[in-house]
Design a protein around this nucleic acid. Structure first.
Lengths: 161, 161
DNA sequence: CGCTTATCCGACCGATTGAGTAGGATTTAG
DNA sequence: CTAAATCCTACTCAATCGGTCGGATAAGCG
């Protein structure tokens, strides 16, 4: 498995926030985690861990206290899934020895010094590119729309019933 | 980490076989695992596990007994890295719930019945596509050539010194 | 004030997997 | 026969995953 359920659950959480927090993401009531947990049939206490990462990454904002909850920090059209998945799973590296250094360059820890490349670097670089392109090229808004169309099974209670 | 060292080591093993088994892959002496282990500085006993998978997948052939070893089962130009990585890591699924059924279609185990899609399917489908495209579009021959050019540090003893 | 609802935080736990070791059986060249 | 190699099974050790639990803090409401 490439990604764990952290990414799976976390993305579903984000989609749920996107569906419910429609309209202006600044206004409207925040969505409580327990509502999401119930809708997606996921353990609440586990979601708490995931949403913490999303919050630290600045992807969602929280409101504490009664009637509190979470909102998307930006409109869904401006949230790329690369950020979401990275927040949940950590840096996207196809391989242990594969680091991304600040300037978008890529590095393999087997390259002792200078810029000698280990045999497999070409491959992992391509894979890395394929993944990040797929993730970065998908916005949360697309997933929300997709969920609305195909998975109408959970019609977002309290809105357009 | 997306892939484990199984893929890393296994690919390096394949590259090593490609470099040493040059010329006709049918002729020439087979390469012993201990030679590869020494050249790549990898534990021999661990490589045995990996090469077993490659053999079962029909990617390498073996010769038992003294002076035995391994050869590529096909010329390196006809070995796609998707097959190699799949042999080592198992089926490439970005996510637990993501299966590939015979007809190239894709399935999410959350789609209880019918063809309802869960919210995240669109994303994982794209990621899966990105990975398999990158892997399938790279041949072992490319990696061998890349290794020859960039990583001349191990000049394949006994040939074109 | 005090209760309820919620986010927050960290410790803990069982199961699985990854990475590697160990030991031996089998096959074959010399 | 012996040395060199593949083959096969079992085992260990550590990390991670998925999840639980208990409690602290914060805010709305009567």
């Amino acid at each position: 498995m490439l990604f764990s359920t952290k990414a799976e659950y976390g993305v579903r959480l984000m989609v749920e926030l996107g569906r419910r927090g429609r309209g202006d993401h600044e206004t409207g009531e925040p969505v409580s985690l327990s509502a999401v947990a119930e809708a997606e049939v996921l353990p609440l206490s586990y979601l708490e861990h995931l949403v913490a990462k999303l919050r630290q990454a600045g992807l969602v904002t929280s409101v504490r206290g009664a009637h509190g909850g979470y909102r998307l920090a930006r409109p869904a059209t401006e949230i790329g899934m690369l950020d979401v998945v990275q927040a949940l799973e950590g840096p996207i590296a196809p391989m242990e020895c594969f680091h991304e250094v600040p300037e978008g360059r890529v590095l393999c820890s087997h390259e002792s010094d200078g810029d000698r490349a280990c045999a497999t670097r070409l491959l992992w670089t391509r894979v890395h590119g394929g993944i990040t392109k797929a993730l970065a090229g998908t916005t949360l808004a697309e997933l929300v729309e997709f969920a609305d169309q195909h998975g109408a099974q959970t019609p977002v209670a309290g809105r357009a019933a």
